[in-house]
Design a protein around this nucleic acid. Structure first.
Lengths: 232, 232
DNA sequence: CCAAAAGTGTTAGTGATACACCCATGT
DNA sequence: ACATGGGTGTATCACTAACACTTTTGG
């Protein structure tokens, strides 16, 4: 028997979108990349960069493309999270959105508005309300996921520059997890994980002892063998 | 300015489906609920119960409905996982599927084939290949998620009957995690979590000391305050 | 009285936490 | 010489892991 055509193709009236929740640390604050909406609904409100998936592109490709078109940010690691599809989550119609999570070094990208449609900004978490659609709920869940991910994967490598000091790395963990960590214990744990290479360089900056620079042995996203235990 | 219509509504040619990956323990083996496909593509192969989302139902409702229609299983907790949407994952066309994870007590459901279309079976994990579509990949990822979930939530409550012994509970953990645990240590940890009520009943079964029965204080899915640390 | 699973505590080892001072530099 | 952040070790505590015998029942 040959394949049957899919009857529902005609009847289903819904669209598939992707959204990218991109975090960075700016001036010691966890911030997210948001677009100020120019049109109704939710005109003037912040929303995640995102848009509709094209027929011939994967979800990942769609997320990367929309992110680039709307913010200029490209070539970053996007971790697929989950889908949101409540019937009324978008007043314009039924839209299922697949959410992606990313962490990037804000220094690497300048958010120049290339087109009128672009109004991308880094917004500190505590100022990121109200958000359009169900994006506040999404943000809460993605943030929880981020706090988990940063402890069991090397995703933090995405957020740091190529070379960084242990203090900078520690700050990232403290900011993302929202808690202070003891310096000596943090260093012991990170060293035990064996994911960093010390470089032959130091960084001098200000009137104090220069800091040893490190780099991630592997910058590609991968699960760690042991959890980074940063809880107080 | 009024809301603009969504141009893409006409152009996007893809369908949204849901799939349910339902686990249980049967005869000491972790098993999943599968449907034997009656039609091409993948005729004769096993696949997860699932189907297309209707316009007016939520993703959760769709998963529950499809599960019921195809297997008779209903009223179970479905945990939304993630979405799969590779362009070629279904040869019939572009289909994005949102996957749900569930754990149930197989005793509660009899998989009587109510209609011709129903050929649902419990299949032990080690016999659950090959699977149709990208379901093997999905299964791998969902299983990993399950092993995580069972340690940080009370989702195991879904898999056990109302009343159970500590040995039965331990077996569930051992089977899902695929590792043996020391009896005394397991009991210490579970008791420390304070999620069980000892009942005033025991169960006599076979020629040995009767076992104390327990029940979950809260059978609804919820994150635990502390991780159930069952690693050897 | 034998078989079979239920039930129960202690010890040793490992890992987490708490904590304070010296170092290298620029001004 | 002082201010600044960088860098390091140890002692205690808590938790994990390993381990064996007694209890209660049915046959």
């Amino acid at each position: 028997m040959p394949m049957q055509p899919i009857r529902d193709m005609e009847r289903q009236k819904m669209l598939v979108a992707v959204d990218a929740v991109v975090f960075t640390v700016i001036k010691g604050k966890l911030s997210i990349l948001l677009i100020q909406r120019k049109n109704e609904p939710f005109k003037g409100k912040y929303a995640f960069p995102g848009g509709f998936v094209r027929n011939e592109e994967s979800l990942e490709d769609a997320a990367a493309r929309e992110l680039y078109e709307e913010t200029g940010v490209k070539d970053i690691f996007l971790k697929r999270f989950t889908a949101y599809g409540d019937v009324d989550r978008d007043p314009r119609g039924r839209i299922i959105t697949v959410v992606f999570l990313a962490l990037i070094d804000a220094e690497k990208f300048h958010l120049e508005a290339k087109t009128d449609a672009m109004a991308a900004e880094w917004v500190p978490l505590n100022k990121a309300t109200p958000l359009a659609f169900d994006h506040e709920e999404i943000l809460r869940e993605v943030l929880e996921e981020l706090r988990y991910e940063i402890q069991i994967t090397n995703i933090a490598a995405q957020l740091l520059p190529e070379k960084f000091t242990l203090s900078e790395l520690q700050q990232v963990y403290e900011i993302v997890l929202g808690m202070k960590v003891d310096k000596r214990n943090f260093r012991k744990r990170i060293k035990a994980l064996d994911i960093l290479h010390p470089l032959r360089e130091t960084r001098m900056e200000g009137a104090h002892r220069p800091a040893q620079l490190y780099t991630f042995k592997d910058k590609h996203y991968k699960p760690l063998k042991e959890r980074i235990q940063v809880f107080v």
